[in-house]
């Protein structure tokens, strides 16, 4: 394709990204570096601040299997589960945002509808993990649309297996952030992830690969223009896709473990759909 067409595709995907994803990297980095003046995020660093911070978290309650009377023993357990439920609600909303973004990729909605479902089922958690990276630094992560900063140490202090959920994402994100992608680069990279032609069960791979190839060309050109001094950035970025698959596999296994061990845990129906028979 002509360079002008590739640039137009890049602009289109960047506009869709800005339209559907409310917390951009530019905004997140401004919050993390304290450039937002009085609007500093609320910091959650222990159980007390978690309980205080819950009012900031947009929490749609997911019904638990049964309401058990709270004892002093399980109050802290309940806090962790409640927080986990809030994370699920936000994740489900994020899946909706990613779906809208996917639909804006030229050609995506013309693919076989079963294949659209497969691409989203397998791609959406990878996309969500990539989108976490701009919200993170080595010390913690923004949550609740940037209203809260939760420390990495606090997440590590939660009981098992909750404490194991975020640490691999921090390790990945800190390395990923050294690539210094901006929002316009991210938009193309997310589209490349969604258009992976090797997802299990795809019916018609060829049109997906053709779409991905065009977006890959657009991404390669974008990185050359936007990061002229960053050698091999395109290759380094593509390598991240391998790490990402392992992180998603481990994440899904942890969720499956949670489902078995936490009697009060209810998985959001949309997330259940996505994770069922995933890996």
């Amino acid at each position: 394709p002509e360079a002008a067409d590739l640039r137009a595709l890049s602009r289109h995907l960047y506009e869709a990204y800005l339209k559907y994803f409310p917390l951009t990297k530019a905004k997140a980095r401004a919050i993390l570096s304290g450039k937002t003046g009085d609007n500093a995020p609320f910091v959650i660093h222990d159980m007390k601040s978690l309980m205080e911070g819950e009012q900031f978290i947009n929490c749609k309650q997911i019904p638990t299997q049964e309401h058990q009377p709270q004892t002093s023993c399980n109050i802290l357990d309940a806090v962790e589960l409640r927080f986990f439920h809030s994370c699920q609600s936000r994740s489900a909303e994020a899946v909706r945002e990613v779906t809208e973004f996917a639909k804006s990729i030229p050609g995506f909605i013309n693919l076989d509808l079963n294949d659209q479902v497969t691409l989203l089922k397998y791609g959406v958690i990878e996309v969500l993990i990539i989108m976490m990276a701009p919200l993170m630094n080595k010390d913690g992560t923004l949550i609740a649309y940037g209203q809260i900063f939760m420390t990495r140490e606090f997440l590590k202090s939660l009981r098992k297996p909750f404490c194991q959920m975020m640490e691999p994402k921090f390790e990945f994100s800190v390395k990923f952030n050294t690539l210094e992608l901006d929002d316009s680069d991210m938009a193309l990279f997310l589209a490349v992830i969604i258009l992976s032609g090797d997802r299990p069960g795809l019916l018609n791979v060829k049109p997906i690969e053709q779409l991905q190839e065009t977006v890959l060309h657009a991404l390669e050109l974008q990185l050359k223009l936007n990061h002229p001094d960053s050698l091999q950035l395109f290759a380094k970025l593509l390598q991240k896709m391998t790490d990402l698959r392992q992180i998603v596999t481990d994440h899904v296994h942890l969720i499956q473990l949670l489902k078995k061990t936490e009697v009060d845990m209810c998985l959001h129906p949309l997330l259940q759909e996505i994770m069922k028979d995933l890996y």
Partner: peptide, 21 residues
């Protein structure tokens, strides 16, 4: 596959945000 993924399918089929998440 569509049958097993009703919410995803619905999200794909509608142009706005139709599903009560």
């Amino acid at each position: 596959l569509k049958e097993k993924h009703k919410i995803l399918h619905q999200l794909l089929q509608n142009s706005t945000s139709p599903v009560d998440l």
